[in-house]
Simulated assay, not measured.
Amino acid sequence: MSLFWRIFLLNAAVFVAAAAVLMLSPATISAPVSSAEVVVVLVGLMAMLVANLVLLRIGFRPLGRLIRAMTSVDLLRPGASRPAVSGHGEVAALISAFNAMLDRLETERATSNARALSAQEAERRRIARELHDEVGQSLTAVLLELKHVADEAPGAVATSLHQVQEITRDSLDEISRIARRLRPGVLEELGLASALKSLTVEARDHAGLAARCRVDGELPGLDDSAELVIYRVAQESITNATRHSGAVHLDVLLRSDEHGIRLRVRDDGRGIGEAPEGAGIRGMRERALLVGAELTIGDAPDGGTEVLLHLPNRSA
């Protein structure tokens, strides 16, 4: 039955009931209307309105649940509970169509995110290669030429040239560090555990954090995409802790058990609080979706921020 006819029949039921009460009751209306008769009419009208309100509220209750689901849905958190298909006719069809639309949107978003992140990684590799092969080699050539000139220059000029050498060498080191962040060669060459330890060493050396990394359990064989997601989530978490949290201590834990792999990055900074999620956190969520992982970001038990990534064991 369509929504139109349901509403019509609900109202008709109220009017029929009111007419039956009017015909069967001893109440009469005279002209002019007495005050007692006005009270009876008003009471009857209020009863009709209340009955109509209750019946319509019951009829529209499934639409209310649908509206709440529509306002709270987040495609970065897929698999959220869908509104139960209830009601009749158009209402049930509308809820079913909404649930089907969410399924399609989540599938299409996952596919498009996979393509976008794959293109992003390819672009990062290209930029890292150009930094290393072109800019890095050019600066290396400049260093060699500066050394040659400084060896033949008089004392004061040689001192200045040595200072320029140190600045150029620092710039070369910074370019190499940026290239490593863009293209984690240590991940490809030494594996995930070594790559995470390298991130904490870099946090200690360049940001002054008291950072440590622990790996519990034997890591199972992961495909390249899963390793890259874990690495990028850890990298972004450490970057956020370094730049925004004001943290002093940083702890990275990678644990493997029968339930899967869990990554935890915890700092003792100011915490995330009520701050809106930025592009970095949204990027982490999108990466987690690619491998079916669950990402949780919130306040740590003792203050600071805690990032948890759980990659379930699909074979369990």
Rank of each mutant, 00 (worst) to 15 (best):
V39C: 03
V252A: 06
A128I: 09
E286Q: 12
R266C: 14
E189V: 02
V41D: 12
A51F: 03
R177F: 12
T239R: 14
A195Y: 01
E202Y: 04
L144M: 07
S86V: 06
E130S: 12
L182Q: 13
E294K: 13
L10K: 07
R82M: 09
I127E: 00
G44Q: 10
D170P: 05
F8S: 08
L102E: 07
I7L: 14
L139G: 01
E130G: 08
R212S: 15
I29W: 12
D257F: 08
L308G: 01
V265F: 04
E152A: 15
H88I: 11
V40I: 12
E121Q: 09
L196R: 07
H249P: 04
R270G: 10
T168P: 02
A116P: 04
A141G: 12
T28Y: 01
R109L: 15
P312C: 00
R125S: 05
R77Q: 07
T305C: 06
P276H: 00
I230G: 02
G298A: 04
L308C: 12
H132K: 06
I7S: 05
I238F: 06
H88D: 15
L263V: 00
A93D: 08
A279G: 09
P312H: 01
T168L: 11
I261W: 00
E121V: 12
Q165K: 09
G59E: 14
I58S: 15
V201G: 13
L56Y: 05
G260H: 04
T200E: 04
L105S: 03
E188W: 12
D151G: 05
T111N: 08
A12Q: 13
E166Q: 10
V14L: 10
P154K: 05
A156L: 14
S176N: 14
V135N: 01
R314P: 06
S2C: 12
L161A: 09
R212M: 15
G246T: 10
E123I: 07
I167F: 02
I230F: 01
A31G: 09
G260Q: 00
R243A: 11
E236A: 09
H206A: 09
V33P: 09
D302C: 11
S96V: 00
R232Y: 07
A316Q: 08
G304L: 04
V50L: 11
L228K: 03
A150T: 03
R6N: 10
R232S: 14
E218H: 10
G185I: 10
E227D: 13
G44Y: 03
E145W: 01
H259A: 15
A195C: 03
A153E: 08
A114W: 04
E189Q: 11
G59S: 06
R264H: 01
G155Q: 10
M70V: 09
S194I: 11
